[in-house]
Design a protein around this nucleic acid. Sequence first.
DNA 1: TGCATTAATTAACCTAGGTGAATGCACAGG
DNA 2: CCTGTGCATTCACCTAGGTTAATTAATGCA
Lengths: 168, 168
Amino acid sequence: MLFDRSSSKPVNKGTILQREGDTHLKSYVVVKGLLRSYIIDAKGKEHIYMFGPEDWIVGDLQAAFIQGPTKLFVDALEDSEIIELEPAKEITDEMARTGLEKAIRRVGTLQNRVLMLMSATAWERYQFFLEEYPDLYNRVPQKMIASYLGITPQALSRIRSEWAKSIT
Amino acid sequence: MLFDRSSSKPVNKGTILQREGDTHLKSYVVVKGLLRSYIIDAKGKEHIYMFGPEDWIVGDLQAAFIQGPTKLFVDALEDSEIIELEPAKEITDEMARTGLEKAIRRVGTLQNRVLMLMSATAWERYQFFLEEYPDLYNRVPQKMIASYLGITPQALSRIRSEWAKSIT
DNA sequence: TGCATTAATTAACCTAGGTGAATGCACAGG
DNA sequence: CCTGTGCATTCACCTAGGTTAATTAATGCA
């Protein structure tokens, strides 16, 4: 899956690229840096849906495809370089093919995540994160890792300190 | 999304259509009846990944696409009529288009599920199930609903009895 | 450089939901 | 018609992780 890297544009850390309710959704190819997508639930709590380090594609595939409003926010956790993929009026055969591949890769990621969330303890979830995003554990604040795992920052801190003890 | 319903074949309740480790994976269009897919985790526990009532497509999209082995089992919870979609050697433009639509629909379902699993209490999960599969609550045993929600049958029983009390 | 804000840690306490075990039901097979 | 097996329910008990709050460590930012 190749993109024209010369057309990438810079976004500063903290920039919000997509908000809940937005339509005409783009997708974002991360050339450099780090994006994330997240929701804010009915109780006002933030839940990270996915991280987007280099080479990942971030966006709401589903809402973009059906041209409905999204529930997901997207913002930049680091100064980044991204390529914006415009929403298509007309889907070409070529687009369907590359889109299929992207969508299926996403299904795989989500499938693992669902199975993980249904069966894993907090400690196992942390292991899962370390495998899924090996280079992120010291790039993102722990409260965000916790949010991604569906646990509190305190619980994550506990896990890490027990783990540190266990290897002494 | 139309299929040739005349080519459907019957499967008996209890038939296992796909096992962990299988390759050359088919997808199954449910014409009538009910399938489910599930995993068995490292501790030997069964977790239902999705139900497949009428008009749903069941299978491991990801593993089928990359032609790897699956982690998912698929079996029939009722006597059913299904259409088997063979794994494709060559993906035509037409297949890419319909496949894209299926994959994206699946992404949407999984996205909701992830967000639900990360933020919802057992009671909220049950509500979610009732909305997602309105006609299934009295078609599948409660222990399977519990397995789908990621809670124990006892917890589901508690929820239901509290709910029954609350409407008295 | 200092001040203000946010992140991480730790500890005490609480609660939702898990575990194990007992009981009653339902229905499948002989 | 009986009997076994598995499902649902209920209860007592337990524990992982949530909550609240205080303390310290980082990280802006002026």
